[in-house]
Amino acid sequence: MSRFDFTLAVGDDALIAAQRLGEWTSRAPEMEEDIALANIALDQLGAARLLLTYAGELEGAGRDEDDLAYLRDDREFRNCLLVELPNGDFGVTMAKLFFLAAYQVPLYSALAGCADERLAAVGAKARKESAYHLDHAALWVKRLGDGTEESHRRMQDAVDQVWPYVHELFAPDPAAPVDPSTLRADFDATVSAVLDEATLTRPETGWAPGGGRDGLHTEHLSYLLAEMQVLHRAHPGASW
């Protein structure tokens, strides 16, 4: 993966995650949680903007963050499938966030030490934010896993449902600024510890869908983009 593709992929992950989290606004289980989810969405969106801006510069074709966010079709997006999956119930959203953050923490930490100064700066900023996301998601995974019978069932279902989509995150790529396969051990350790404490079972690894990094997505992404891009595309060239 070139530096451009890599930056785009990491930026698209953050952008699509922010878009999904933003859907929770005014719908969270507690009003306090509404605020927390918005904070996490804002962090992801902030990282996405820095990364997409930098990707545009790397490409050198004059595209800015909005050109990249609003004027690409789903086949041109490089995000992982995990982030585009629908929110589901609060358990599914927490499972998605937990796995994403458990990947982003070591990713951003590695980026913080990489040779590319711009990526290093993004990594240094975003790893602190991701650490908070991981903490928040882990708190909820434990509470739902070890809460009531119903919440345990729902949280286990959520973990089972989302788990297949994590493998794509770690596909080896020695040419990338950070080889994702090097992050897997860290991810597994985090996940095992939290799932254990939450009295949840880590699913067996079987089906492992992928393709997001090559622009082959689930059916969900096109709908997400249709909504996200509709206004921007309806007024070509306009300023907002």
Binding site: E30, E32, E33, I35, A36, D135, L139, R143
Partner: peptide
């Protein structure tokens, strides 16, 4: 604020009162 336990209370406080 309201929270079920201290851990969540602390985090909610962070999000609510130190944005």
């Amino acid at each position: 604020l309201h929270a079920p336990d201290a851990e969540l209370a602390l985090r909610n406080a962070r999000d609510l009162y130190t944005r």
